[in-house]
């Protein structure tokens, strides 16, 4: 399968901060990727560089084998839906869709209409009169109906309730199954999307900490809890992500190796073994990273 995105030594430095540092990775065609990490980790900056809306300080980005900057062939195959998208003040929803239709060659009116109904969007209402949730729905309609070979959703559902988010997931899967494309999902609601993801990229402080098959990562992350001495014995030689103490009870989040049977080992010591969610893993991982920095100062 072809590579659709190639990032090499990508760095974005501002006067006082470096928001992306020496990042390199590739994405393959027609898969769903989760781009995870906390606010300020550099996700949005990265996505802006992929879509040539921001200029890298150094390193390069190739989408579909070419530089995206001022490249129509590449750009019209990328649809980037972001929470902070600005719209012209006097635009109606229908104007947004018409503009999207004019640029994205795979735009599908039928799907756009269906989604408009699903989200109950008033086509003639002005963008500035929409609620936060409706505005998010507009982005979702554009993101799905454009059927762009690279579709990027950056926190697409601010202000949307669980029902509307459910509609988004359902339509995404349905349409993706029929018209495969590469999707990058960046969100805080990891639990809701973790089963949609084929691969996971975890970013923290501008660096790529993890890039792994979602299933494989899920099988490696777990926590054990028990009394502190036993847990400490168990922890030796293992990759510990996070330690939490409540009285004499210690719970540690760990990253196991694939081939090990972590469960048996833990249970034989009388420890409680619990598989953890991707969301908890990301939270623990990024908390650890920030603590390290604080201690280091």
């Amino acid at each position: 399968m072809g590579q659709i995105l190639e990032i090499n030594g990508l760095t974005k430095a501002y006067k006082d901060v470096t928001s992306i540092y020496q990042m390199s990775f590739t994405l393959k065609e027609n898969k769903i990727y989760g781009l995870l990490g906390r606010n300020g980790a550099g996700k949005t900056t990265l996505m802006h560089m992929i879509t040539a809306q921001l200029f890298p300080t150094c390193g390069d980005v190739k989408v579909f084998g070419e530089e995206p900057y001022e490249n129509t062939r590449v750009l019209q195959q990328i649809c980037f839906i972001k929470e902070s998208q600005a719209y012209p003040e006097y635009f109606q929803i229908s104007d947004v869709f018409a503009t999207a239709k004019s640029i994205y060659p795979n735009w599908n009116d039928g799907l756009a209409n269906q989604l408009t109904q699903d989200f109950q969007l008033p086509l003639n209402r002005r963008i500035k009169e929409l609620s936060r949730g409706m505005l998010s729905s507009v982005g979702i309609v554009v993101g799905l109906a454009s059927r762009a070979p690279l579709t990027i959703f950056d926190e697409p559902y601010l202000g949307l309730d669980a029902v509307a988010r459910g509609i988004f997931y359902d339509r995404l899967i349905e349409d993706y199954a029929e018209y495969p494309r590469t999707v990058i999902l960046s969100t805080h609601l990891i639990d809701e999307v973790s089963q949609l993801l084929e691969h996971v990229l975890i970013i923290e402080r501008g660096e790529l900490l993890f890039y792994e098959d979602a299933e494989s990562l899920r099988s490696r992350i777990y926590s054990v809890s028990g009394s502190s001495e036993v847990v400490e014995t168990y922890m030796k030689g293992k990759e510990v992500i996070h330690v939490e103490k409540i009285g004499s009870l210690v719970t540690v989040t760990l990253l196991g190796k694939k081939e090990e049977n972590n469960k048996k080992q833990a249970e034989s010591l009388g420890l409680e073994y619990v598989p953890i969610s991707l969301q908890k893993f990301v939270v623990d991982l990024t908390t650890k990273s920030r603590e390290k920095v604080v201690k280091g100062q």
Partner: peptide, 16 residues
């Protein structure tokens, strides 16, 4: 102010 961010965000080239 009104349209540049929107156009760039919607995959238009700066030149266009």
């Amino acid at each position: 102010r009104n349209t540049f961010s929107f156009a760039i965000g919607f995959s238009f080239r700066r030149k266009d």
